[in-house]
Amino acid sequence: MPVSSSHRRRISRAVGVLALLAAAAGLSGCASVGDNVSTAFADPAKYDLYDCKQLETERVKIAGRKADLQGLMAKAETGVGGSVVSELAYRNELVATQGQSKFAEEAWRRNKCHESPPESKPAASAAATPPAPAAGVRGSRPSSR
């Protein structure tokens, strides 16, 4: 059964409208990615029982992970199709990490925590110095005597 030209125009118009709706839905999804989505992938009660020292360690760890993920995403975007690879491989973890960061910061403020003072120089340099070998200890090969 042949299709008339008026049916073809209606079909092509319907396909065009659906394509526009799909594009609009996709773009609106990008615009709504924010705090609401980032906190959906993180446990809001995770940091409730942390003390300030634990929160400080966690904040440093989260900041490092966020920086790593952003670096990996930037590196991926330099290649062919990199933005797609970047989004597929790293975006979800980055969003989850941002949610964790938000909850850790809220707990930090709620507990009225303050940054720890930096360690004194002598203690830091002593920790960085490797221990001297024990007297009488030679290389790992046994002697040939």
Rank of each mutant, 00 (worst) to 15 (best):
L69Y: 02
Y90S: 06
D51R: 01
G71W: 01
A25H: 02
L94K: 00
K66T: 15
Y50K: 06
C52N: 08
G34S: 10
A40K: 04
M73Q: 13
L88E: 05
Q70I: 08
S38E: 10
L55T: 09
G64D: 12
G26C: 04
C30I: 12
D68S: 11
K46N: 12
C52I: 11
L72M: 13
A107F: 08
V85Q: 01
L72S: 14
L20W: 01
S86N: 02
E87Y: 14
D68Q: 11
A96W: 01
L94A: 06
K66S: 15
E87S: 14
G64T: 05
L49T: 13
L21S: 11
F103W: 04
K46Q: 15
D43E: 09
A23Q: 04
A31K: 03
Q100T: 09
V33S: 06
V37A: 05
S28E: 11
L72T: 05
S86E: 06
L49R: 14
G26Y: 01
G64H: 01
V95Q: 08
R91G: 04
A42M: 07
N36D: 14
A45N: 11
I62L: 12
S101L: 11
M73D: 06
N36I: 08
G82S: 12
D35L: 15
S38G: 03
A23C: 13
L27D: 08
G99Q: 02
A24Y: 01
D43W: 00
T78V: 14
S38T: 14
S32R: 14
R91V: 06
Q70T: 12
T57K: 09
R59P: 04
S101K: 04
E105I: 07
S101A: 13
V85D: 04
Q54N: 06
G34I: 07
A96E: 11
A40N: 03
A89K: 05
Q100H: 12
A22W: 03
Y47F: 15
V33P: 08
V84Q: 03
E93I: 04
V60Y: 05
G29M: 08
L94D: 06
G71Q: 10
G79N: 08
A42R: 07
T97V: 12
A107Q: 09
K46S: 14
K66M: 15
G82H: 07
Q54W: 02
Q70W: 00
E77N: 14
D68M: 10
A107E: 11
K75Y: 08
A63E: 15
T57M: 07
A63L: 13
A24H: 00
D51V: 04
S86M: 05
A23V: 15
G79K: 04
F41L: 13
L21N: 02
E93H: 00
L94G: 09
Y90M: 04
A67C: 07
E58W: 02
D51Q: 03
S32G: 10
A104G: 03
L72A: 13
A107Y: 02
G64E: 10
L69H: 06
L55N: 09
S32L: 15
L49I: 05
D43H: 00
A45Q: 13
K66I: 15
Y90I: 06
N92A: 12
A107C: 09
Q70E: 15
F103N: 03
D48T: 12
R91N: 09
S32E: 13
A22K: 00
L20I: 09
A22M: 08
M73H: 02
K66Y: 10
L20D: 09
D48W: 00
Q100S: 14
V80W: 13
